[in-house]
Design a protein around this nucleic acid. Structure first.
Lengths: 332, 332
DNA sequence: TTGTAGGCGTTATCAT
DNA sequence: ATGATAACGCCTACAA
């Protein structure tokens, strides 16, 4: 920057001022400086700026699984919210291994990110509620997909229980008596809560909860397909006529497996998903699912974080769920 | 850091030395310092370290679409390669809008990333070959999915033409005469090259290339399904008995659409994909596809970049493709 | 072995 | 309006 100043015949501070625009600068010098900057296509070093300001303008996002459409949507929301700001997201991939998870967080912290978005952090070990509460005192923090007692206002959660209850009740209302459920990764709260909603709906309808009809998947399409295989292999002993999949990805996998076995949906088996993923209804119509505003969850989480950052008040809205029936489902 | 030194009764430099381990420090002082560090759980500021060293230990990754399984695999490779290093990836999302694409790159540059991985950059406007060559002179750079003349050694590409040729020839060898093709986003080289391989294989077999049988998709499942709908709607005028999908995601979409119309695969229509995506063969068996070592492409690209960074010699291996036939395809 | 001091690229506060 | 100058947090000669 001083080099630029030298070439333009001004001081380094003037260059800084031209760039920041905080203080008026004589038009001729202004022009001279911009000229030199242009020639050398100089860019101010954000890192050094950060040193001065005490911030990095980076938001850490601790996540898992970048290849999923679900996460992709959340990310779109996060990126969208930061679009016109100076902030930039930095992703760190957690894993199912708790220590790796913690290490990923440490990297973010060492980089002095200005705030953190925790995506469905594991509730074990060093990542327990207590730890996260402590973390929240050190820096602005938003948690997606997990409710931390005492930190409710900074947690983005979804009415998983209600959604699953709604979905299951809908299936029951259509006359089904034996309903299977493919869960997501159970240590992720969303999955556990959806399972609860499912079992509660069964109980409230006076139906029996059959453990053999509940298969744990991992939110991926493959696990959905595999779960169906397991269910079908037991079908003699544990018959069922409908499946409630813990998310749309598993619903897609399940649908493929059913198609493959030439089992009609919904004629032979009814299928309900969760998320209302982009395009799902096009790929596997007809589809009944629970709509979840994923994109907005990412967006709002980020906006709240930015508000936290600037000390502004904010409130995370409640994210509603909705039963969506695409085309005529014909659940029987 | 000086605060830590004060509390431990040593100078700030000694604290630095304890942390870096570059210079011996008296055991007692060492202990005292570590003690204080522990108490205040102090972490050195990587940003400030970067200022001194002139590097940020960040690798910029310009990408598009974080929600795709294909990109997820590349990313796994990138992350894996950086795992035991001090480097950390920073992602910036490009878009189909060239100016956005450029802006995403600028953010990375302003953050003074030490190196850049360009993921299938658009070959237009400011991102032309000339520009990228210039960029490569400024900082270590690896390009995935596009061949830049004069920069071949830093480009990770795949034998797309050969793979598509192989796939199409295989289908022809099974007796098909009218083969449809669903392409990926055509401004991405991979997609264009695969289309070339497809048309060349047809020509070499003396078959006619029918434009109406070539549908442009965008690598997503939905586009695969939609393409099939279009193809089927024209089937009277332009019949076909096989489909070569430009990637596995579109193959999945196509398969779903076919299943939905109760069109058997491979009895009625044969389907071949490209990528050998994780789990695909499980979800839609039997599947014939071209195997592409996606994970290793990300891994090797990153290792090469790190080598570039440290001035070590390196060579990007050729990434082979392979025709994979899962189970008995029964292409007729 | 340890402390002092200078510098990395900016911004902000002073004078001028 | 503009130029010095002091931070920001850390590393590293250099000196002791």
């Amino acid at each position: 920057m001083s080099e630029i100043g030298r070439l333009a015949g001004v001081s380094q501070s003037t260059v800084s001022r031209v760039l920041s625009g905080t203080t008026p600068v004589a038009p001729d010098k202004q022009a001279a400086v911009l000229e030199v900057i242009e020639q050398h296509n100089f860019r101010p070093n954000i890192v050094a700026q950060g040193l001065v300001h005490g911030r990095t303008f980076q938001i850490g996002v601790l996540t898992r699984h970048l290849g999923s459409p679900f996460f992709g949507e959340i990310l779109r929301g996060i990126a969208k919210a930061m679009e016109e700001t100076n902030y930039h997201p930095v992703f760190s991939l957690g894993s199912e291994n708790p220590s790796e998870d913690r290490k990923a967080l440490d990297v973010l912290l060492a980089r002095r990110v200005d705030g953190i978005i925790l995506q469905a952090p594991q509730a074990v070990n060093k990542m327990n509620d207590e730890f996260i509460r402590g973390l929240a005192e050190e820096l602005p923090l938003i948690v997606i997909g997990r409710q931390i007692p005492g930190l409710e206002k900074q947690c983005v959660i979804v009415k998983n229980f209600e959604g699953a209850y709604l979905a299951t009740s809908h299936i029951i209302a259509k006359g089904h008596r034996a309903i299977a459920h493919i869960t997501g990764t159970l240590w992720i709260e969303d999955a556990a809560q959806r399972r609860e909603g499912y079992t509660q709906a069964l109980r409230d309808a006076g139906l029996e909860v059959i453990p053999e009809l509940i298969i744990e998947g991992d939110f991926t399409e493959v696990s959905g397909a595999q779960a169906v295989d397991v269910l079908l292999s037991r079908r003699e002993a544990f018959p069922f006529s409908a499946i409630f999949a813990g998310n749309d990805q598993m619903a897609i996998g399940a649908r493929l497996a059913l198609y493959h076995r030439r089992i009609g949906v919904p004629e032979d088996i009814s299928l309900v998903g969760f998320d209302d993923l982009l395009g799902t209804q096009y790929m596997i119509p007809p589809l009944t699912t629970i709509r979840q505003p994923i994109f907005y969850m990412g967006l709002m989480a980020t906006q709240s974080l930015l508000a936290l950052l600037s000390g502004e008040p904010f409130h995370l809205p409640a994210f509603p769920l909705e039963l969506v029936i695409r085309q005529s489902v014909g659940l029987r």
